[in-house]
Design a protein around this nucleic acid. Structure first.
Lengths: 267, 267
DNA sequence: CGTATCATTGACGTCGGTCAATTCGTGTGG
DNA sequence: CCACACGAATTGACCGACGTCAATGATACG
């Protein structure tokens, strides 16, 4: 069940799943027509206040959620009390496909800001797949995209030192918000996170996030100020963050293309 | 395109997607009937030698792969030449759903041992979804499961120290191989990995893996010998590895259930 | 029996964690 | 408008888990 929140009659004028940018967005496989079709299976729309939960760890919501407005954080509490942030969900994105399976979900989804969210209950979702098989493909596509992001986060946390890890993280959020790579120096964008969020997402301590942000500011790469980030030197950020614009695929947020002997030959 | 490998006529007797253990396996949402249905959409079956690639990083195979025999490793090469292992694929499992989307996949799939693999090309897969909408639900279910595993790996690498990280990792593979939690002390199971694999999966150096394995052996927790692991003290392994049997959900491989104030209240 | 690969061990350095203190910022009540 | 409160950000001192480098040992295979 979704956590408590104001239930607001859904506004028929507001297009559900509207992406902020039309092109290359995460809704990519869905045409406007598709979105309208999907809409008809929506059961309702909720408005949640910051910190409300959409679902909690080990809930079995049996619904698919789409975020219309605001940011959502997916996290998991570990046995030692640490919080691992798994992903953020931005407007126009689905909140993972795990909850719609009807199985206990090992993570929680919490509103980071005030949020409005579309709900598709499991039965309706299955009706959608049955009535519009072509959309099933799109849903698998989107679900696979979620997995790809998780893989990217794993690489980031597992292999990159703090500086590069933080840059990669911020650039991913820039990309998902704007659906393009940064180029204009000084470009500013919304980043409604505090340092604790970054720490919990990246597996670093708050203190080290702070020190690293100071370094990045002093080196003229990036600045964080009151819910916004400023990309002072975008190309330097991308280089250090492990993003190669020339190898960048419009379809996904991935690291630089590299081939290496070890991968090819002997295990 | 799949990498070169011996093409063998598919054996009509061999049940594709047969799970080694019937109950609670990763094929869970698929009944025997379902498996037979899916089979009819299979285009062919390949046999690959160890180290052959099913697909390479940035390929767009446009097919879904199911592993019948042998182990597969999913990895990504990073810009600095490091290899991050994202997951292993065991017999009876699908190799992620990313390749079937037809989009460039940012990771590679390589045979760890000799492998036989079923191929479902994208067009056939979409026909399957169209003809059997009920199976679309199952596919989303399976894809979500892949994402859940990736989340779990992220938590493991991000938060646990080397000892617990290694234990958690080995226990996951035990669970996926047997579909149950270990209980009998001294239980032995197949683990066809070398220390470099564990290092690349866990974001640790080979030397540290080695030292940690020595510790675990000396402490009477676990032993690794020639492609096999021995769980000398299963309950101690689970405790240290962050697995609580009492909280364990049969449906997924997850960590101990914990609630914490931070998650509930203030951001 | 030579060679390649993997496992093992030791010495040493460092990145990032921990702990504790101080400052800043913002919201609130008087 | 100011005083206070409380969380977030910041900084410093110190330390330890893990990485790096280098050498040696064990195994398997042709």
């Amino acid at each position: 069940m979704p956590a408590a929140g104001l239930i607001k009659p859904s506004n028929p004028r507001q297009t559900c799943l509207t992406c902020t940018s039309g092109d290359g967005s995460l809704c990519e496989p869905l045409s406007t027509q598709d979105v309208e079709t999907i809409q008809t299976y929506k059961s309702n729309m909720l408005t949640l206040a910051a910190n409300d939960h959409i679902y909690r760890q080990y809930d079995a919501p049996a619904a698919l959620f789409a975020i219309i407005e605001g940011w959502v954080v997916l996290y998991e509490m570990m046995e030692n009390g640490d919080r691992q942030i798994l992903d953020f969900v931005l407007p126009g994105e689905f909140v993972s496909f795990q909850p719609v399976t009807g199985i206990d979900v090992p993570h929680a989804a919490q509103a980071l800001t005030d949020v409005s969210v579309c709900i598709f209950y499991q039965a309706a979702f299955e009706r959608l797949l049955r009535d519009h098989p072509r959309l099933a493909t799109a849903m698998i596509w989107l679900s696979a995209r979620c997995e790809a992001r998780a893989f990217d986060h794993l690489c980031n946390v597992s292999q990159r030192p703090a500086r590069a890890r933080l840059l990669h993280f911020i650039l991913e959020l820039y990309y998902r918000g704007t659906m393009r790579l940064p180029d204009v120096p000084g470009e500013t964008f919304l980043l409604p996170l505090n340092q604790q969020h970054m720490a919990d997402a990246l597996g670093l301590s708050v203190e080290h996030i702070n020190r690293t942000l100071r370094e990045l500011r002093q080196d003229g790469l990036i600045e964080i100020r009151s819910r916004h980030a400023v990309l002072v030197d975008p190309s330097a950020c991308m280089k250090e963050g492990g993003l190669d614009p020339s190898a960048f695929l419009p379809n996904s947020f991935v690291s630089q293309r590299i081939a290496s002997p070890r991968a090819i030959g002997a295990t």
